[in-house]
């Protein structure tokens, strides 16, 4: 029953989004540009040599994978949740016989499909032009998948608990902008984490943001040894449980507050 209801939600979203198709392609295009800029800048900087052990082709491979991972893990839903609370439209959602997180998940899933339909051909085209160099190993490929799923879960839940702060503060969306900036700096977009200067690099390895995007990319492009992967997974799982705990806590408290105040 739940899956049928979920499918109906997803289909409904697709139908209404088709009306705004250009809007979504534009969004996907806009998200792709910042990593693309750094792809071009770093590969030009590498030239014929290497920077921090990475050649021109390695930078291209790293950033092309990052564009896809960034798209898959980015949760546009988190902005919507905050808006729902702010504009008092939570009532409509609460009246449905499904928990609101299903709405978010449905739109996450529907969104990924639409965005990837745009991103995959573009990335394939870029790969043809820019000639990435990637050493594929089965071990890395197998480790990449769980890292990607965990990265998505972490980024989704982290953003969701931030968005839930809208129950208490009207402009909690500012925190989402802060999160985006930190992801940009510390999650391998501005540069692969290994190239960050000492202090930033330590910060990146401790804070959750690297584990939302950069970590799976580093695995797939072979930048991590076994020990690096193990520590990474440990941090990723740890931060994911923190995010899940905060989500549950804030959701319950927020709902109590919402129903008490009356929206």
């Amino acid at each position: 029953m739940k899956t049928r209801a979920g499918w109906a939600l997803i289909r409904g979203l697709w139908l209404s989004w088709l009306q705004y198709r250009s809007f979504f392609f534009l969004l996907a295009f806009g998200w792709m540009i910042p990593p693309l800029i750094y792809l071009l800048v770093w590969s030009t900087a590498a030239g014929e040599g290497t920077i921090g052990g990475l050649s021109r082709g390695a930078f291209v491979a790293y950033y092309l994978v990052l564009i896809l991972v960034n798209q898959v893990t980015y949760s546009q839903t988190n902005w919507t949740v905050g808006d729902l609370i702010r504009y008092g439209q939570m009532n409509r959602v609460l009246l449905r016989p499904l928990p609101p997180v299903y709405d978010a998940l449905a739109s996450e899933f529907a969104g990924k499909v639409v965005f990837l339909a745009f991103d995959l051909p573009v990335v394939a085209l870029l790969a043809l032009i820019l000639r990435p160099e990637l050493e594929w190993t089965w071990a890395n490929g197998l480790a990449f998948l769980p890292a990607l799923v965990l990265a998505w879960g972490l980024r989704f839940l982290w953003g969701y608990w931030l968005a839930l702060l809208a129950f208490w503060a009207t402009r909690a969306d500012a925190l989402l902008a802060l999160q985006d900036a930190l992801v940009f700096l510390l999650a391998g977009q501005v540069a692969p984490v290994a190239l960050l200067p000492g202090f930033l690099q330590t910060l990146a390895k401790i804070l959750p943001f690297r584990y939302m995007v950069a970590f799976p990319v580093e695995i797939l492009t072979g930048q991590l040894d076994l020990a690096g992967m193990q520590t990474g997974f440990a941090f990723q799982a740890g931060w994911l449980s923190v995010a899940a705990g905060l989500y549950l806590l804030l959701w319950r408290a927020g709902l109590r507050r919402y129903t008490a105040v009356g929206g």
Partner: peptide
């Protein structure tokens, strides 16, 4: 409908 809106693209 979904298919028809795709067509009208």
């Amino acid at each position: 409908g979904l298919r028809a809106s795709l067509g009208s693209l």
